[in-house]
Simulated scan of single mutants.
Amino acid sequence: MTNAVFFVSCPSIESTRILLLRIYGPSSGVLISRPKELQTLHVLSSKYHIGPCVYGTFENGRVEEHFDATTLTAADMRSPQTSSWIGARMAELHNVDVQDVEEARGEDDHWDIAVAKNVQSWLAYAREVLALPGVSADVLRALDLDAFENRWRQYARWLQDVESAEGVSRRVFAHNDTQYGNLLRLKTLKDGMPEHRQIIVVDFEYAAPNAAAFDIANHFHEWTANYHLDTPHLLNPALYPSQDERRNFYRSYITHCLAEGDVSLSDEEMEVELVRLDRQVQVWSPASHAMWAVWGVVQAREMVEGKDGEPEFDYLGYATCRMEGFRREAHALGLSM
């Protein structure tokens, strides 16, 4: 939703490859470190064969590898087979050595968790947007950032207590934005390749160390989105994956997480892991809403300033929807907000 993408070809010259030209969105600079993203893409593509190769860069964009693939749709993600493939691919990304793509901060190799870092750093930019004269009183009431920050801190303390008591969700290198538009399906698969490898993950703008459960919860929230409807900014919680759909995803994810160590689980052990992972996803779920609520406000600057012409996406409406989701899910977990 923040980049313009073009396919570049030269049909007059035989055997030339199609390339992808990506132009960065106008508000993305305050949200994304492009040098860090390029470093991530280089390491993932060269060492782990994940994501596209980058062939060249310029100030507001880059040229990268084009995959002969189709972009998944909202309906595609609901297919049990496709969902299990996505789970497998997410497991492979989560098995990436964080040290390969992130610089350690401190002697104990501690990395900032992306969701906490993003919410904290983006709030200042969000406040600037809501201070602009084009923001209505109704929007200011719906997106009360002072109240949100207090609720976020309350939730973060609660989450820390839960992880201390129940166990910590594994810290991994996470994609953090596995919506259907960032998932491709190859039209052909090379001989001998596992079938789940036909799913290609792209757009690593927000990829960073995070809780594994956050990445999964965030993906499940994307089941409730359809960016091709008349109201693409509104999520439909009724479309959140059922318990059976979540367990289908988890089985594939857990199996492929363990595959690197050549470990297998008995049925009883798998059941324990399924229950544990579902609980972790549940407690991290509000964090996804919180992060994207603040993101939506920051992205709304062009729209609020009237520089966006006829906006294609209602970022403030999206932020309001995600803010409501944060409060709703935190309340469901027993937090009084």
Rank of each mutant, 00 (worst) to 15 (best):
R246K: 15
R246L: 06
R246I: 12
R246F: 10
R247F: 12
N248Q: 12
N248A: 11
N248E: 11
F249A: 09
F249C: 04
Y250V: 08
Y250K: 07
R251C: 13
R251M: 12
S252R: 09
S252Q: 08
Y253N: 11
Y253C: 05
I254D: 04
T255C: 06
T255R: 15
T255W: 05
T255Y: 10
H256F: 14
C257A: 05
C257Q: 13
L258H: 04
L258N: 02
A259E: 06
A259P: 02
A259G: 02
A259R: 13
E260M: 13
E260D: 01
G261N: 14
D262Q: 15
V263F: 03
L265T: 09
S266I: 07
D267H: 02
D267P: 03
D267E: 15
E269P: 01
E271T: 11
V272F: 10
E273F: 06
L274W: 04
L274N: 03
L274S: 04
V275P: 00
L277T: 10
D278Y: 10
D278H: 07
R279V: 08
Q280C: 08
Q280P: 03
V281M: 05
V281S: 06
V281W: 07
Q282D: 15
V283M: 11
W284V: 11
S285Q: 05
P286V: 09
P286C: 10
P286H: 09
S288V: 10
H289L: 05
H289Q: 08
M291R: 15
M291N: 08
W292Q: 03
A293Y: 05
V294W: 03
W295Q: 11
W295H: 10
W295F: 13
G296H: 02
G296Q: 05
V298P: 00
V298K: 00
Q299D: 09
Q299R: 13
Q299F: 08
A300Y: 09
R301W: 11
R301E: 15
E302V: 00
M303Q: 14
M303G: 06
M303C: 13
V304E: 03
E305C: 10
G306Q: 04
G306P: 00
K307R: 14
K307T: 07
D308I: 00
G309V: 01
G309W: 01
G309F: 02
G309N: 07
E310Q: 13
E310I: 15
P311D: 00
P311V: 07
P311Y: 05
E312N: 08
F313V: 06
D314Q: 10
D314R: 01
Y315C: 05
G317F: 03
Y318F: 14
Y318I: 14
Y318E: 05
Y318P: 09
A319C: 13
A319Q: 08
T320K: 07
C321E: 03
C321W: 01
C321A: 13
R322W: 03
R322C: 00
E324I: 14
F326H: 14
R328A: 12
E329Q: 15
A330P: 00
